[in-house]
Design a protein around this nucleic acid. Structure first.
Length: 103
DNA sequence: TTCGTGACGTGCA
DNA sequence: GTGCACGCCACGA
């Protein structure tokens, strides 16, 4: 049987987020079976290696914002990638109403 | 095994 | 609309 760690589940869920859409940490956690461990998603993603190829940039918080510090390179990268996929930002925020991934 | 930490979520002022 | 505080769960030392 699969002894899939929560980590592996998170990776799986994140990897299936379609381009042009975003998912919240809580949403990913829920889909991964960790409904109340949204922090784990963030913590886990923060430990991702650079060559993971995981679309972690499509994961944001429930406020439609990027949880990283605005002066962080990861923040810029995430925002830039999302815009490349057609996601429009209203300042530092995006419309979850429009871009939220609905599985 | 226990303690502390964290890219969060929700509620309230 | 913004900011603060508490609660949640899993992982690392």
């Amino acid at each position: 049987m699969e002894i899939d760690n929560s980590k592996q589940r998170i990776y799986r869920v994140v990897s299936m987020i379609p381009s042009g859409c975003v998912a919240t940490y809580g949403q990913v956690a829920e889909l991964a079976g960790l409904s109340r461990a949204a922090r784990l998603v963030g913590t886990t993603l923060s430990r991702l290696p650079g060559d993971s190829q995981l679309p972690w940039h499509r994961v944001i918080n429930s406020q439609g914002r990027i949880s990283l510090p605005p002066d962080s390179p990861a923040y810029t990268q995430q925002k830039d990638r999302l815009e490349q996929e057609g996601v429009e930002f209203a300042g530092e925020r995006l419309s979850l109403r429009r871009y939220r991934w609905k599985p």
